[in-house]
Amino acid sequence: MSKELNIWLDNLLSDIESVQFQRRNSRRVRVDVGSEALPALLELLQGRASYVHLSAITCVDWIEDGQFELVYHVWSYETRSLVSVHTRIPRDPGVYLSIYDLYQPAAFFERDIHEMYGLYFEGSPDMEKFILTEWNGPPPMRKDFDGEAFVNEHFHWEQYHPQWLKDLEEEGGGITVRPEDVR
């Protein structure tokens, strides 16, 4: 199995320049590729090396480098190995190509990344909001969005003191059995 995998990968990688690959164990391979060559690499992986299952697309926000990292995890049912293809694109303007033509599950992941990171995928069939339909703020998964600060700014939870809580406090602070009554 592993020998076969090596031959396939060698054949593949000879076709594309600027590819680094790193074998982590018998079933995990990490590939780093430039963003312009990624669709071609995925096409080769799918068409020539049977990596037909797109397991996930992950976006990582490297804010200090000003980059988004996209990781495409593809699995082959034949060689039983998982290739993670890493690529980096500039954070601004945050536009990349969709791989929906190759892998249909990409539609969900791309829609999710667009919603959570604001990264736009050209050619993706559906970029509508899905989870955050009532959210108008910045994309929340970006590292420059601080959820805790947002909550403290917009929700005055420290001042929350409704009548029922006052009543309860008058009756003994919400403790139904007082410590002195406990034997």
Partner: peptide, 27 residues
């Protein structure tokens, strides 16, 4: 599947959860 990225800190830098239902329940 879980994709976890660490930068050597005491907290994860990124955790991505790939639930099977994200395919089944949508597309």
């Amino acid at each position: 599947a879980y994709y976890v990225v660490s930068t050597g800190g005491d907290k994860p830098y990124r955790v991505h959860v790939r639930g099977p239902s994200s395919m089944h329940a949508v597309q």
